[in-house]
Amino acid sequence: MDVQLKILRYNPEKDTEPYFQDFTVRGVSDDWRLLDVLQEIKWKMDGTLTYRFSCAHGICGSDGMKINGRNRLACSLLLKDLNTNKPITVEPLPSLPIIKDLVVDMSSFYDKYEVVKPYLINNTPPPPNGERLQSNEDAEKLFESAKCILCACCTTSCPSTWTNENYLGPAAMLKAYRFIYDTRDEAGNERMDILDTPDGIWRCHTIFNCIEACPKEINITWHLSQLKKKISSREI
């Protein structure tokens, strides 16, 4: 079968503005990933088409992009799950500066990630010859948030991010959850102070866009609401 795509193109060396370019790719089948279609274009039709990719199976977080209006990973989306009767629209993740075509500048995303102190803080020396104990139940409480692949699909789909570029965003706060709820971590309060600010957790209005965008099916809003409860209940 054939598919048609409308891809947002932008080359800062040539273009003043991004524009849509149409492509028709022939001889595809419905079990192709959208990434496969992009590869077909890049390596057989137009070598200048630019996007990120690596693992090709939804685990490295490289190829987040806006596909038919929704943030997804191009490698985790098969043609059979898209309406191929009309052109598929492919755009870069919204709200981050475009470097070229579908490649956006991730630096602000990573900066926000670093703000929440994304590492275990525990100043009590661990047992000399063994692990810190943790029940499997407690461990599993972290697994969903630890699944995050930092693809930025959530943060860039969030209306609060669009209106306030300083908003920490769901991915960074999910990371904060991952440590605040880790029984081995001692810096929960410090992290909650970081979230308990105007650009932090209270800017989340539970709009659920982020959940819909998350390719790892993380219930982000649930995690953020747990944080909200925890933060408001710690106040005297």
């Binding site: 525990n122 010859n129 692990e131 810190r132 104990l133 943790q134 029940s135 499997n136 880790d182 971590d185």
Partner: peptide
């Protein structure tokens, strides 16, 4: 491996709370 655990790596656990 113990060191990774001390660094914060989240492991699955056995009934004793050790690394599974």
């Amino acid at each position: 491996i113990i060191e990774l655990e001390h660094m914060g790596m989240p492991f699955s656990r056995n009934e004793k709370g050790q690394i599974a």
